[in-house]
Design a protein around this nucleic acid. Structure first.
Lengths: 119, 119
DNA sequence: GTAGCCCTTGGAGTGCGCTCCAACGCAACC
DNA sequence: GGTTGCGTTGGAGCGCACTCCAAGGGCTAC
């Protein structure tokens, strides 16, 4: 069990963002210590790391809250969750393809500069 | 020479965005017809397509305006422009690597759902 | 000449994802 | 018991990249 400061340091999110994520329902209500301070367990940290992966691959916050809601609703939402992840996966694949394509254009332009062919 | 509507259609940007890009100095003042309407030439369209590539690879608007400013200043800024593009290229490569890495995590999770291993 | 349409402008508004703030609480240490 | 330090809350503010709006101008068709 770690405080919000440590949870922030471990996940790379800010303490403000952790509180924000809780507010919008991305994280289930975190347990509190005697002073009312949040205490994050291993499960919380793993969930946060997973959320961060979704976020860093461009999933929108509202989709993430939808996914989180499904998780909370229990095992009968597995198929829906799987479908969400698969749809997102396809978007990530497409994004990688787009970046790779534009990268060649960028490389081509850089080569022109290197050859002194640009004015 | 095409009007703003056609330029928007061809580049995939909106007419509003084209005017916005001009306002912030991303595009040099576009020539106008008798009625004061913008007319985009081939060179303008090629420049817009290049801007769009930078944008779609995650370059920030203010970096793009910096690049545009260098182009306007003439040939003696070639080295600076090349450096900007190379730095951006490195970011794109890093971004692709990150996406690819997170993609495996996503695939792993999807496989768990497929095997019925998730609750 | 008037209706319809597309364009112009400056400026305000929007949605996203945080980020910051003031006011306060509690616990520990001197 | 005062100070320090870390946390709490609700709500306001921010930066980005557009996006929309009202008011108006000019061309074309009828």
């Amino acid at each position: 069990m770690v405080g919000i400061r440590d949870a922030a340091a471990r996940t790379g999110l800010s303490a403000d963002t952790l509180r924000y994520y809780e507010r919008i329902g991305l994280i289930e209500d975190v347990t509190r210590d005697g002073a009312g301070h949040r205490q994050y367990g291993d499960q919380d940290l793993r969930w946060l790391e997973f959320l961060l992966k979704l976020r860093r691959t461009g999933m929108h916050i509202h989709q993430m809250t939808a996914y989180a809601r499904l998780v909370r609703q229990g095992p009968h939402t597995q198929a829906a969750r799987q479908a969400m992840l698969e749809a997102h996966r396809d978007e990530v694949v497409a994004r990688i393809a787009e970046l790779t394509e534009h990268l060649s254009a960028l490389d081509y332009k850089i080569a022109l500069y290197r050859d002194g062919g640009m004015t």
